[in-house]
Amino acid sequence: MQGDIVAAAKLIGAGLAMIGALGGGIGIGLSAHGAVQGIARNPDAAGTVQTNMILGIAFAEAVAIYCLVVALLILFVF
């Protein structure tokens, strides 16, 4: 019975850890928002803006990835 409680706590903890992905999602949305506006105002710079947007998204996504890693660690490692 004790083991079951630990397993349940692990699942809940992993789920809570993934709440951090919220920040990554907001960050990606904001960077895409800015990039699309920039491209709309200056379509000639679309290539550069896209490259920088992808880099920015990658950085913003890193936060969400850390959350995923924590969730995976909780689920499978501990």
Binding site: E61, A62, I65, Y66, L68, V69
Partner: peptide
């Protein structure tokens, strides 16, 4: 290093 490794792993594993 961590960010590189876990970004790729996380995306593809997920």
């Amino acid at each position: 290093i961590l960010s590189f490794a876990f970004r790729l792993f996380g995306n593809i594993f997920a």
